[in-house]
Simulated assay, not measured.
Amino acid sequence: MTAADNQGFSTASIHAGYEPDSLYGPINTPIYASTTFAQDGLNELRGGYEYTRVANPTITALERTVAALEGGKFGKAFSSGMAATDIVLRILLRPGDHLIFGHDAYGGTYRLIDSVFAEWGVEYSVVDTTDVDAVREAITDRTKVIWLETPTNPNLSVTDIAAVAGIKGSAKLVVDNTFASPYLQRPLALGADVSLHSTTKYLGGHSDVVGGVVVTDDADFDEQLAFYQGGVGPIPSVFDAYLTARGIKTLSVRMERHCDNAERIAEFLDSRPEVSQVLYPGLASHPGHEVAKKQMDRFGAMISVRFAGGEEAARQFCLNTRLICLAESLGGVESLVEHPASMTHQSVNGSQLEVPRDLVRISVGIEDVEDLLADVETALDAIN
């Protein structure tokens, strides 16, 4: 696994994107808490910086770091993952265009497409993207974007990125890489045009910052992203950019522990009679296991579970954990559990993307795995 300049991933996560300046030599990226920057003359900018809505050195350092880890040439940071999603779609789509996305995509992405872009005149097709033939059949001469999540939220479906890249034609292939992080998966190397993250999750990693980032090799697309940063203003604060960059420095060590813990917990859940199905790409029984082995370095730390006792059992499990906190979001150092149908994915209820009501999503943290297993076992035992 390599990153910028043939450095190892851990090295790049610490050093890529920033070098100590010649004035004071700070090891950490400084927080440039300034809205504006002194100019040496009329429109003579120092280092290319004039106003933080347009660019800021702290934000630039974060963008360069994530681009390096993704193996991309360009990166742009935004105030949230949804802001990044919205801007990418605004650039790539126009009224009358066609979009393809997965039948188990994130509820917030579906809500944005269905309530904003559809009203704007964009048509969309909901497809099982794990079926490459189904994606091929859905492509029309008006298809401008194929939007993938892999693994998906919350069903943990795995799509073959390279296979879809091979049949996309002139459409742009955008991959939401949030669940995997660049430590486990790098979509651009597999043929994607754009890789997108909610940096709120694994990149930040500590449940204390909201943000998004978009990475591409396309200079023209990057210029358009920069225009929307400055022209619309959906930028992260410099403090959020600093926190995200600080989180990235430990991404590799965190992801190893996340994955170790998730593999143990998935195997334990798979052995329990209360559970009807464990959705985790690391299990050989998972339908996307072989594809995940091919395009991911490990299988991640998200697990979804379907309960034999239906929705009531799922709800009881969520309410019975003590160490694993009942909360939305994911990717932080602490373990979280939620019931998507009544929490993060309410917006897809009644749609083609409706989440099974017997499903629970677990974001496995980096606590001692024996403590997590004990909490899971206690919660399962308490189901009536």
Rank of each mutant, 00 (worst) to 15 (best):
N43S: 15
V126H: 15
P356D: 13
V209M: 09
G282M: 00
T29P: 10
V215L: 03
E334D: 06
Y183I: 02
D260C: 07
L89A: 06
N384I: 05
V376E: 10
G230Q: 10
L99A: 03
G300D: 06
R306S: 14
E338K: 03
A68L: 05
K172Y: 13
P356N: 10
V291R: 05
D133S: 11
G81P: 02
A163M: 06
S363P: 04
A301I: 01
D260H: 09
A165W: 02
L148C: 13
E370L: 07
A284G: 11
V355Y: 08
A313E: 08
N28T: 11
F74G: 04
S304F: 09
T109P: 14
D217H: 05
E149A: 14
L372R: 01
G96M: 07
N384D: 14
Y18N: 10
L269V: 02
E137W: 08
G72H: 05
I100D: 11
E19R: 14
P57H: 13
R306T: 15
Y242I: 01
R254Y: 08
A138N: 04
E263Q: 07
N28K: 09
S351L: 05
G81K: 03
V333K: 01
S351W: 08
A77T: 00
A12M: 12
A84F: 01
S34C: 08
A33C: 01
